[in-house]
Amino acid sequence: MSLLQLENLSVTFGNFRAVDNISYKVEEGEVLGIVGESGSGKSVSSLSIMGLIDFPGKVSADQLSFDGQDLLAMPEKQRRKLTGSEIAMIFQDPMTSLNPCFTVGYQIIEALKTHQGGSKKELKIRAIELLTQVGIPAPESRLDNYPHQLSGGMSQRVMIAMSIACNPRLLIADEPTTALDVTIQAQIIDLLIDLQREKQMGLVLITHDLALVAEVAHRVIVMYAGQIVESGPASEVFSTPKHPYTQALLASLPESAAGKARLEALPGVVPGQYDRPLGCLLSPRCPYATDYCRKVEPANQGDLDRQVKCHTPLDREGRPAA
């Protein structure tokens, strides 16, 4: 049984589908990377797993289960017990996701108290232990600090400490390093991966940094305009992409252009609420699009391990199949 299983999950805001029938699963001890540009529904899909989509947003799915338990069917109270302890999340901007009015120690202990309880003294010891685990020097003195006294990297470490406080089995990290410098990013990613290995957590790493995902993820999901366009083992997706969008994303990275040559930019932008095309959503930007693509939406091809949503998936040489 998979740790997390999604089947045809959709999130709608009024008439707008932010997430459109996505299916994937996460196994225990697996790092799943979700990549895509802004507006592709990466964050919204993960918020829906946490149950953080508020009115007017609506979540519907054929299946959304964690460890065999149906998250959508269970009572609200029981779900709240799961989220925060068994399923935890790290948000993008550490500076704004910590409450500026409370000390770091208070905020970590709050999570522990809600889910596990214990005496004041025990909780404090546990909080210090957590801060040590995430590599914060002199953790005792840091407990009484307010978030504004911490740097970006430190704040993100505190966020990680909070999220692993209750030994979650699934950790969702939504752009955990986007706001940080490269050397700090390397530290934080190393820390996350070390913790993931040590605790055998499932880790969902959401990012727009393709190279980062290529380095750490086992499997990758590429999202475009709310849909999963390609998924598969990281090494395969990046070496032989089957979807034209994945191919174009990789080609537009500066590191894939030789010398000072022009980059192969994908023209246009991700469609928004009012300019969604008929048929395949990529068709206005896709270099291989045919009239058929512009009329009929392609179905997912292949099994859940290696999927592509395209009428003419690319072959090993990167050319569309006839």
């Binding site: 540009e37 393709l210 537009s252 990275l253 500066p254 192969e264």
Partner: peptide
């Protein structure tokens, strides 16, 4: 900017 737009 996003990667594809960054390239543009």
């Amino acid at each position: 900017l996003d990667v594809s737009v960054q390239a543009q």
